[in-house]
Amino acid sequence: MALKYRAILFLVILIWFTGIFTEWFIKYDEHLLFALPFLKKSYSLVCHQQPAKLILFDGGETLTCARCTGIYAGALISAFVFLFSSKLKLPGIKFLFIPVIFMLGDIFLYSVHIYSYSKNIAFITGLLLGSAGFFYLYAGLKNLIIEIKNRE
């Protein structure tokens, strides 16, 4: 995939990821306060936003839970890596299922009270899934570009 496509992909994920921290940016531009409820609603479509599971930081909290923040952070890290190396080979499907098992395992274990919900564990399992999932998204986009070019 050409650098310009990889850069666009990275930029889109970066914008989405930055949006999670909108509350933090309000102190730099107070007009963002107008957009905050709208953005909360947007992120609520892809995250339950349970208050106990949001990450608290200086001046606010994230608009997605720890796990979702981890997923997007993972995708962002992978997108950054792909900016510099486009020839990484798509690993087997097990590569995607291992983080899924970790994530489902965490959800199951805290749901049956083996241990308490931990934002750190949720974030890390999300991070693993996001970074692995990006490989497959990247492969899909790469194939799509090839298909479009072949048709031309």
Binding site: L45, L96, G140
Partner: peptide, 27 residues
């Protein structure tokens, strides 16, 4: 706001799911 939000976010995430899903099925 609900309509615009749903249209933008759902369409993008739907597309992502489709692209990743195809990789899983093809694999």
């Amino acid at each position: 706001s609900v309509l615009i939000n749903n249209l933008i976010v759902d369409t993008i995430f739907g597309a992502i799911g489709g692209l990743i899903g195809a990789q899983v099925i093809n694999n």
